[in-house]
Amino acid sequence: MLGSLDSKPKDLETIARSGGALRRMAARVPTYLTDLRENPAWLPMFLLARTIPFRKVHWLTAKRVRSSVSAARSMFDDLKGEAIAVELRRTGIFTGLTLPQAIQEEIARFGHETPCFGNFDRKLEFLAGEHEEAERRFGRTILSGHHFERILQCEAAVAVQEDPLLLDVARHYLGGEAKLITTRTWWSFPTKTASEADLSRASFKFHFDLDDWRMLKFFFYLSDVDADAGPHVYVRGSHNRRRMKHQLTLLVGHPADEVLEYYGEENALTLTGKAGSGFVEDPFGFHMGTLAKQTPRLMMEVGFGVSKPSKRRYHGEPVIR
Rank of each mutant, 00 (worst) to 15 (best):
M1E: 08
S7D: 15
P9H: 05
K10D: 15
L12R: 00
R17G: 00
S18E: 07
R24A: 09
R28E: 14
V29D: 00
T31Y: 12
D35T: 06
P40V: 02
A41C: 03
P44W: 06
L47D: 04
I52W: 10
H58K: 12
T61P: 02
T61G: 05
R66P: 13
V69G: 06
R73Y: 07
D77L: 13
V86H: 10
R89C: 10
F94V: 01
F94A: 15
L99S: 08
I103T: 14
A108S: 14
H112S: 05
T114H: 05
F117A: 02
L124N: 05
E125Y: 03
F126Y: 12
A128E: 06
A128Y: 04
G129Q: 07
G129M: 13
R136V: 08
R137M: 03
F138Y: 11
G139K: 01
T141Q: 00
T141R: 07
L143S: 04
F148W: 08
E149V: 12
E149W: 12
R150Q: 14
A157D: 10
A157W: 11
V160M: 10
P164T: 00
L166W: 06
R171N: 08
R171C: 10
H172F: 14
L174K: 11
G175R: 07
G176L: 10
E177L: 01
T182D: 13
T185G: 05
W186A: 10
W186R: 09
S188D: 15
F204T: 02
W213S: 12
F220Y: 11
Y221T: 05
L222Y: 14
S223N: 13
S223I: 14
D224S: 13
D226T: 09
D228Q: 13
V233M: 01
V235A: 01
R242Y: 09
L248W: 15
G253W: 04
G253C: 05
H254S: 11
E258A: 07
A268M: 02
L269N: 04
L271Y: 12
K274F: 09
M288W: 05
T290C: 04
M299V: 10
G303C: 06
V306T: 14
P309N: 04
E317G: 13
R321Q: 03
